[in-house]
Design a binder for these strands. Structure first.
Lengths: 241, 241
DNA sequence: CGACCGATTGATGGAAATCAACCGCTGTGG
DNA sequence: CCACAGCGGTTGATTTCCATCAATCGGTCG
């Protein structure tokens, strides 16, 4: 992946981009430093508070964004109010659906979120100039497809307990990818209600399974939100994965 | 989409490609007639019988393919035997995971299938020459991602009856896309067992819901496999979509 | 302090899984 | 030719897991 990075020195990299993960693991890694500079002129950093909407369900959005920090949830809703979270996105994921207005999905900030936002047109023009950018988008889309299909197995075939364990495992391995691969300690980015919507369960069942995992000593729960996992392998067993 | 077709006349189009849907709606539409000709020299038509495997779960596959006719099911399996169908593919879908060996998915012919198969290397070389080809792959991948997320809502939040109705609606609208948009009549490409694995149910529940829909006069069942839907809108209501 | 919100826990009900019997069809072999 | 085994599918009886309904807890904010 690093082979695609056109820059060797940081000399002509925009200040805001220097520490940005999107330039390494994200889509911006596909750009030359001059392209990065031009895109940077049109980009703005934005802070979005937990709970507010990034992309409306079928409202047209005129910009794309990279997630800098925080967690974004992608939700589908039925007309009678039932809803399902169909994806979680972490830094440095690319946010926004290229080449189509909408697919009945809304994107909301699960936690406080910082994004780097660009006009749609700027990205689409740049795609034409840099095929490598489209390649990165394909890579991310394939990754999201894999994740969606993994989750389909969880939704369709796992028990409530396995679902909750799978969720905790997912968060433990995504919220801080560089951390210890054996144990983990983190703040849950979702409320019980969100977790239920992600797992196709009710909040009561989520709560019961969490206390079950706590009693089985698979996890330690501090403040309803803070979770510690002393042994990730053990958690994976409970998740059947 | 037609704007991308480089050919006006059929004169220099390979015989096998002339009637192929992949050249219109599929990935081959991204190729010039000379590229098509060169790819065609390396491609072979293959017939696969219902039930046999196209891509093993983690075995490396050295070729990609376009589906000419038939239905392919993508399956994920757990170590204890539970399984979930995570996608169905119809003509002229592209088959095979670009840029990665595997993602724990196996592809099996649900019905008898005809494919047009190419060596992996040929496609990957052609992607470098024709960015438009990668664009088509991105389009298809985004479509599959949308479908996967739609299905996540079905798996997580719908009742057994809504799931079965959703499945019938999916088949009715995909098996013959050009047909009457109001009613439908088709052979189910999946067994009851496959349907159960697609819906996250058991075969018994699938069977019960089918008879329920039959008694409610939403569908007519002829030979266990042949289904008629006199009113697709009514079916969509039962599917809550 | 009390209202409110998110979360937990308990009691009960229901939808789907499980267990089991049976149907209709096909192919096979005595 | 018929007996019967095998397979996919249906139907019935029972069980189980999760949803639903309801009460309570703990923390925060006005």
């Amino acid at each position: 992946m690093d082979a695609h990075r056109k820059d060797i020195h940081n000399s002509d990299i925009p200040v805001l981009c220097r520490a940005c993960e999107a330039r390494h693991r994200g889509v911006c890694g596909a750009l030359t430093s001059s392209q990065l500079l031009s895109l940077n002129k049109q980009s703005t950093r934005k802070h979005i508070e937990a709970g507010s909407e990034l992309i409306g369900e079928s409202q047209e959005t005129s910009s794309y964004a990279n997630i800098i920090t925080g967690v974004v949830k992608l939700t589908k809703m039925m007309s009678d109010g039932r809803q399902q979270i169909v994806g979680l996105q972490f830094a440095p994921d690319f946010l926004g659906r290229p080449f189509r207005i909408d697919s009945g999905i809304s994107a909301d900030a699960a936690t406080d979120v910082n994004v780097c936002s660009f006009p749609k047109a700027a990205i689409e023009r740049m795609i034409k100039e840099a095929p490598e950018l489209e390649h990165r988008l394909l890579e991310q889309t394939l990754k999201e497809l894999d994740e969606a299909r993994d989750w389909m197995l969880t939704l369709g075939r796992k028990t409530a307990c396995e679902k909750v364990a799978s969720f905790l495992y997912l968060i433990a391995t995504h919220i801080n990818p560089e951390a210890d691969p054996d144990s983990a300690s983190f703040e849950l980015p979702l409320t019980r209600s969100d977790i239920a919507d992600f797992l196709g369960l009710t909040i009561e069942t989520v709560s019961r399974q969490l206390t079950k995992l706590r009693k089985e000593q698979v996890i330690v729960i501090r403040n309803n939100r803070h979770v510690e996992v002393p042994d990730l392998d053990k958690l994976a067993e409970f998740a059947s994965q």
